[in-house]
């Protein structure tokens, strides 16, 4: 692409981290709490895709934590592993036990479900984001 939109570029530099922060917030608090790995992941995809539209697909690819395929692989691996702790407690695979963590006088509920959600988040970001960037990349040459 030869034409650049300077306003959009300046705007996007700030918007990208904001969108990612919003996606992490959604990851921890979905529509109806707790957790929205999928919708959070889609939010992150939206961040990557809009970054790619303003700059280009290669730039957006470089701003991902790692290559999209690897991101998706790590994500699904996390989701699979999140079911394993249950086995040690004699529960069936993928049962998600809950604990409370006392952090600075604040009771926090923690569970392996969070790990699962994080896995979904990364998997969605990796697969959907990766294919979005690929699509944008493949039509960039024609524009």
């Amino acid at each position: 692409m030869t034409s650049r939109a300077h306003m959009a570029e300046i705007f996007m530099r700030g918007l990208y981290p904001l969108l990612l922060i919003a996606s992490v917030v959604i990851l921890f608090r979905g529509h109806n709490a707790p957790g929205g790995g999928f919708i959070g992941g889609l939010m992150a995809v939206a961040a990557s895709a809009s970054y790619a539209l303003v700059f280009n697909a290669t730039n957006a690819l470089n701003r991902l934590p790692c290559a999209p395929v690897r991101l998706a692989g790590i994500g699904i691996l996390l989701a699979l592993l999140s079911g394993v702790p249950a086995i040690s407690q004699g529960l069936p695979y993928l049962t998600h036990p809950w604990w409370t963590i006392n952090l600075f006088q604040v009771e926090l509920a923690a569970s392996t479900v969070m790990l699962f959600d994080l896995g979904v988040y990364l998997a969605v970001w990796g697969t959907i984001g990766g294919s979005c960037l690929l699509l944008i990349h493949s039509i960039e040459g024609e524009a």
């Binding site: 999928f38 697969t127 959907i128 294919s131 979005c132 690929l134 699509l135 493949s138 039509i139």
Partner: peptide, 17 residues
């Protein structure tokens, strides 16, 4: 929905190629 979304993504890339 998630599965059909993924399939649509794949098919569009395939079609472009």
């Amino acid at each position: 929905i998630v599965i059909s979304f993924a399939m649509l993504c794949f098919s569009l890339i395939l079609a472009i190629r």
